[in-house]
Design a protein around this nucleic acid. Structure first.
Lengths: 187, 187
DNA sequence: TAGAATACGTCAGTCATATTGACATATTTT
DNA sequence: AAAATATGTCAATATGACTGACGTATTCTA
């Protein structure tokens, strides 16, 4: 059920001295890459455990998250954000709709569109899923001291593909009021 | 093949004003969480594409990485690091061994152990896989300015489960010379 | 207004990675 | 000699991704 069977054993390792991190050097960067792996894994672990109890997976969480943050999201936009195929999204979204966490409404001006919203149950589930993550990130920033938040944000944003960076910044930073549409049916 | 079918379309979204980030507030944290998702996804994308061409997946990369960094690693240690089951590791590791990227040698003092090493081909593949990631992280740190490296590292480490933090720090930070062993066969 | 394009859904098949459970084998420890 | 350990393996199952093909409702456009 849990992501981690091993909860309390140490997994100790030798590291030869040539691997020691020279500040700014290659090994230092590789250390950060490893750390990113571990941080992401633990960051994900709590919602994963809750989702498993409901018979859901990470994919359900991602949908709940983005629909929660962008009410009225269209299916095509969600596909573009998640970068998955229509077919992959299909099943997961259907489960969320069938079980009453997500609601689809016809577009007002374009009746082909299925605008996505969370139901009250969906909002509640999302809140439960993300509470531990919000707690974890808040605590980490506090521990790392003032100014770490800005630096962390900057590095993360700079890690994003350059040609995606503006969009991502708009998506999870400043408001960009815009509802344009684009091509579909990846081929 | 690629992780991303959509390469050049914008995926624009409206964000209502109540969602705007108040510095240090809840929405600000949620923004960072989203950013972590996008950053991790792009960070992973290049090796993923290369691996797909070889018929490998992310799991193969993870094994190559940890074996490369910790030559002589035992299978049980790798299981503890990756937190997967023996059975999951089994197939992936076998593929790497069969195709000549990883080599197993008998333990000198305990002949039950299969100590893991990269072959020259394994080292070469790992280098190819991680070159773009090293480049990406280096560039991001440079863009984010001096001091960002330390802050980034601190936040990532603080994101790791508290009871894991020491081990992880030892694993990907300072040298901890130690080859102890522990229980196995998660149950 | 007829046909093209768009938004969405769905059926069918495949793949990679993970899971649990059970068991086999070699080796070391007690 | 028996128990514990380190590893490997068979079988069945689940999730989440993929490609390809097709269907249907709706809107746009020539």
């Amino acid at each position: 059920m849990m992501d981690a069977p091993a909860t309390n054993q140490p997994h100790p390792l030798a590291q030869d001295e040539t691997t020691a991190a020279a500040p700014g050097g290659r090994e230092d960067i590789v250390s950060l890459m490893e750390l990113l792996f571990f941080a992401y894994r633990d960051f994900i672990s709590e919602p994963d455990a809750m989702l498993a109890e409901l018979g859901f997976g990470r994919a359900h969480h991602r949908i709940l998250h983005f629909v929660g943050r962008h009410p009225g999201l269209r299916v095509s936009q969600l596909l573009a954000i998640l970068r998955i195929t229509k077919q992959s999204l299909g099943r997961v979204l259907r489960e969320l709709v069938d079980r009453g966490y997500v609601q689809q409404t016809e577009g007002a001006t374009d009746r082909r569109q299925r605008l996505l919203h969370l139901t009250p149950a969906g909002r509640e589930l999302l809140e439960r899923l993300e509470a531990p993550q919000i707690q974890r990130v808040s605590a980490a920033l506090e521990q790392a001291g003032p100014g770490s938040r800005a630096a962390f944000r900057q590095v993360l944003l700079a890690l994003v593909d350059e040609n995606e960076r503006r969009r991502v910044a708009a998506l999870c930073g400043l408001s960009v009021d815009d509802h344009r549409q684009e091509g579909d049916d990846a081929k």
